[in-house]
C-alpha cells in the first residue's frame, strides 16, 4: 500500500494565462512598433524610359550588346553637309579610322558635356511647349467669351443669362454652411439686403425674426462673410432683394 501523495501540482492554468498575456503583449508591442516605424517596403514608382528615342552618348556602353574586346564606340557624328564637290585643297576626313580609334578621355568629357547640353536643351524645349499649350488654352477661353463661366465658381453674376440674385443667394448659402449650426428647430429669418452699385453691402434689414437668437447671429455672420465676395450689380445701380434664411438653405425674395 503506497503512501498518500503529499501534493498535487497546480499552477498550469495560471502559466497558460500568463503565456497568453505575454504573447498578447508582444503582439501589441509589434503592432505599436510597426506604427511607430512603418515598413519601408513601399512600392517604388516605376519610370519607363524610351530607350529607342532617348539620345544617349554611348547606347551600347555597359550593355550585353557590347562585346568584351570591342572598343567603346564614339558618339554619333554630326550629319555631314550636303554632298558638294570637294575642293582639291581640302583632304577628305577619314571617318572609318576615327571610329576604330579609341576615344580619348578628353573627348569622352566633351561628349558627356555635349550630351548634358542636349538634354538641357530638350528639357527647355519641352517646358516651352508646355507653357505655350497652357497659354493657348487660356487664349481660347478668352476668345469664346464670358458665357462659358455661367454657373461656374468663377462667375460673378453679371454674365449674360445669369441672375444677380441667384449669384448673391449662392454666396450667402456657401457662407451659411460655414457659420450655421445644427438645430432641431426650424427657424426662418427674412432679411432684405441692399447692395451698392460697386458691390458693397450697404445695409441689411430684418423683415421677420425667427426668435432663435443663435440662428440669427449665424445668418448675420454669413451675410458679413458673403459680402466680401459680392460683385457690382449688372446695371450699376443699388440692388435690393429679400432673402428667406432657413437652416437648410436660402430662398430668394423679390428684388427691386
Amino acid at each position: 500500500m503506497s503512501a498518500k501523495p503529499l501534493r498535487i501540482d497546480t499552477g498550469m492554468g495560471v502559466s497558460f494565462i500568463a503565456s497568453a498575456v505575454i504573447h498578447m503583449a508582444v503582439f501589441l508591442l509589434l503592432v505599436w512598433w510597426g506604427q511607430l516605424y512603418p515598413s519601408q517596403m513601399a512600392i517604388q514608382e516605376t519610370y519607363y524610359v524610351d530607350i529607342v528615342n532617348l539620345p544617349v552618348a554611348n547606347p551600347q556602353s555597359g550593355s550585353s550588346a557590347q562585346k568584351p574586346g570591342e572598343a567603346e564606340s564614339a558618339p554619333p557624328l554630326a550629319q555631314p553637309p550636303p554632298m558638294a564637290k570637294p575642293s582639291p585643297s581640302k583632304s577628305v576626313p577619314k571617318v572609318g579610322t576615327k571610329l576604330v580609334k579609341p576615344a580619348a578621355p578628353q573627348e569622352s568629357v566633351e561628349s558627356e558635356s555635349a550630351f548634358a547640353e542636349r538634354m538641357a536643351k530638350m528639357e527647355r524645349n519641352s517646358e516651352a511647349r508646355r507653357e505655350e499649350a497652357v497659354l493657348e488654352k487660356l487664349r481660347s477661353r478668352v476668345k469664346t467669351g464670358s458665357s462659358a463661366k455661367i454657373g461656374t465658381p468663377g462667375a460673378n453674376g453679371t454674365e449674360s443669362g445669369s441672375r444677380y440674385g441667384d449669384f448673391i443667394k449662392s454666396r450667402l448659402e456657401d457662407a451659411l454652411k460655414v457659420t450655421s449650426y445644427s438645430t432641431t428647430k426650424k427657424p426662418e429669418v427674412a432679411i432684405r439686403l441692399f447692395i451698392s452699385a460697386d458691390g458693397k453691402l450697404l445695409r441689411m434689414k430684418m423683415e421677420r425674426s425667427s426668435g432663435d437668437v443663435a440662428f440669427e447671429l449665424a445668418v448675420r455672420r454669413a451675410i458679413d462673410l458673403a459680402s466680401e465676395k459680392f460683385t457690382a450689380p449688372p446695371n450699376h445701380a443699388v440692388y435690393e432683394n429679400g432673402f428667406l434664411f432657413k437652416p437648410k438653405g436660402i430662398s430668394n425674395g423679390t428684388s427691386r
Partner: peptide, 10 residues
Amino acid sequence: SVVSWGIILF
C-alpha cells in the same frame, strides 16, 4: 508557442 511558454513558466 502559447502552450510552450505556459509549460516553460510552469
